[in-house]
């Protein structure tokens, strides 16, 4: 067979020189388009950060963290800039704390099972599947679940109900990141420990878990940051309160619900507090993300 059987018009003999063709135009247009996409994606981020920082900083002062929310005041009132959201900060810590208290041990134990005792089994795959599906359940449905299970049963809105909802929300993240962290521990450590005669729980608790701790902590930090900003599962579980509350079984204020409640009111001093609370929340989220990255990099 010779090359004459091939159509002559293909590659051989074409000019090598650059030419403006429909193809090069198409390439340039597409490249321009994706750059426009990147720009479009970043504009809302920077606009949001800019507004939250500039509007939130107006009210930033120590009293924000120590005082209770004020009643609505008109802009010309001398008390316009009074008050804060100390109780909401306490409430956020309380609900997120309760959520962490439930979900962290739960998640780590489940992760230990998935990575140490059942890795690559059908059962573990099934549980991973459920974990992923659980992480896709809307957070408001977690709230509905907590409402049904705790609020209806105790006949009271409470920080505990919100903490429970947040725990369900945090659980999949903690399980997934912890399982990944545990699986990343080199297997020679495992063999070394077992070879020295350690039992499985000694191996896990004294060798594997300590080696995986930084990555697990990273996952926990990110889960906490997300939970702190969550609002949907809290509005009808913790509800809100204008007063200090230290009792987990009573309704309590949180920063995120405060932003919601105050944002949709017409009162300017409340709106300012909503911006300030947003700034606190965003700072928390930013801080958590940078911290998480720093921990990973340090390893």
């Amino acid at each position: 067979m010779t090359s004459q059987e091939f159509p002559a018009s293909l590659a051989k003999g074409r000019s090598l020189e650059r030419a403006v063709t429909s193809k090069t135009i198409f390439s340039n247009v597409m490249t321009g388009l994706v750059f426009a996409c990147a720009l479009l994606a970043l504009i809302p981020l920077f606009a949001l950060l800019f507004y939250v920082i500039s509007k939130g900083a107006v009210r930033l002062s120590p009293q924000l963290f120590t005082q209770l929310p004020p009643p609505p005041f008109p802009r010309d009132s001398p008390q316009f800039s009074s008050g804060g959201f100390g109780n909401a900060i306490v409430g956020t810590f309380m609900t997120v704390g309760l959520g962490s208290l439930i979900s962290i041990p739960f998640g780590i134990f489940a992760a230990i099972y998935l990575s140490e005792f059942a890795r690559d089994t059908k059962f573990a795959n099934g549980i991973n599947f459920f974990t992923n599906v659980l992480s896709g359940v809307p957070s408001i449905v977690m709230g509905v679940f907590a409402y049904s299970l705790i609020v209806l049963a105790t006949r009271s809105y409470s920080a505990m109900a919100a903490g429970f909802a947040l725990a369900v929300l945090m659980l999949p993240t903690i399980v997934r990141t912890s399982a990944e962290a545990l699986e990343a521990v080199p297997s020679n450590l495992r063999q070394a420990s077992v070879g020295l005669g350690a039992s499985s729980y000694q191996t896990v608790l004294k060798v594997i878990l300590p080696a995986a701790i930084p990555a697990i902590v990273t996952g926990i930090i990110l889960a906490i940051a997300r939970a702190a900003g969550e609002t949907a599962p809290i509005i009808f579980t913790a509800l809100f309160s204008n007063f200090w509350n230290w009792d987990p079984w009573r309704p309590t204020a949180t920063l995120s619900v405060l932003v919601y409640n105050f944002a949709i009111t017409p009162f300017a001093n409340w709106q300012e507090l909503a911006w300030a609370a947003s700034l606190v929340l965003i700072t928390l989220v930013l801080f958590a993300n940078v911290l998480a990255r720093w921990i990973i990099r340090k390893r």
Partner: peptide, 11 residues
Amino acid sequence: PEIDAVEVRRQ
């Protein structure tokens, strides 16, 4: 500079 790398790879 006037050579198109894509054309080169075709031939």
